[in-house]
């Protein structure tokens, strides 16, 4: 618990204290590592850290996108931005890649795992290849990454790992249970990992956003329930500094999902939403 409070102070200092960059931070800036760095939430998450002169390791498939993000973060004040083009779609590959990245860039202070595919449930049910890819990208790859991170960060005994799950993982609904079940796996995996890493001083945060207005949801009609990536990323940063273990963002989803989880099955199974 001593380590926990030390960590809280550290992230507070990095994110909140105005212009008091300690000598230590100058020499050894806060290291932020983002998997799926080109996702809508990832960029907004990274920006406040860049303002505070952090250094970054960004992992995503597309080099052009990574270069544009890196330009933005450098301009805002990032000390260093390392980009890694890698397709995060397998357990062993993601595990090995993460180990290699950590070897070259050192263990991170803050990690965000943000990659994922949404997919259309009906189409997924008709395509074994698409279903396989969904589970590889959304479940197996994050697990590989988390396994590698557990080793490296557990050794150093500090840091935060935030993983983007979803409210869809709270209960399998008729319209998107394929995606929902991948996120359910992530919620449960991170729940256990949180308990396992707690004594080692590493904090694991499970992020459960509702619908977020990003490229992933562009084909869906905009609704008042849809949050901006900026709002979601602000909530994540706050949850990191306050050590909220499971974050529903925006917060009204906590209540909605509480109700949905507690609906009796004979009613729930008749709902087609």
């Amino acid at each position: 618990m001593v380590d926990q409070s030390k960590l809280a102070q550290e992230s507070n200092r990095n994110l909140r204290a105005k212009d008091k960059e300690s000598e230590k931070e100058k020499k050894n800036p806060h290291h932020v590592m983002i998997f799926g760095a080109s996702s809508g939430i990832a960029l907004e998450f990274a920006r406040p850290f860049a303002d505070r002169k952090a250094r970054f390791t960004l992992i995503a498939r597309d080099e052009d996108k990574l270069k544009d993000i890196s330009a933005d973060l450098y301009t805002r004040g990032a000390k260093n931005v390392a980009i890694v083009c890698y397709s995060l779609d397998a357990l062993e590959g993601s595990y090995a890649a993460t180990k290699e990245i950590i070897k070259q860039t050192e263990a991170p202070d803050t990690v965000l795992i943000a990659h994922g595919i949404l997919g259309d449930n009906d189409a997924l049910m008709k395509s074994p290849q698409a279903m396989d890819l969904l589970f590889r990208v959304n479940v197996l790859s994050p697990i590989g990454i988390l396994m590698a991170l557990e080793e490296a960060m557990g050794e150093r005994k500090r840091g935060t790992i935030a993983v983007i799950s979803s409210v869809a993982g709270d209960r399998g609904r008729a319209s998107n249970f394929a995606y929902g079940s991948t996120k359910s796996a992530i919620s449960e995996f991170t729940s256990g990992l949180r308990a396992r890493l707690l004594p080692k001083g590493v904090f694991v945060l499970t992020v459960k956003p509702g619908m977020v207005a990003t490229a992933m949801t562009e084909h869906l009609p905009r609704s008042p329930l849809m949050a901006s990536p900026k709002k979601v990323s602000r909530d994540i940063i706050k949850a990191i500094s306050q050590k909220t273990p499971v974050l529903y963002t925006p917060s009204f989803w906590r209540l909605i999902m509480f109700i949905i989880r507690h609906l009796p099955e004979f009613i729930f199974s008749r709902l087609k939403f």
Partner: peptide, 16 residues
Amino acid sequence: NKFRHFDPETGRLSCE
């Protein structure tokens, strides 16, 4: 809406 480059000496800003 990303920045591209800023030169604090000259005040030239490149952005999307």
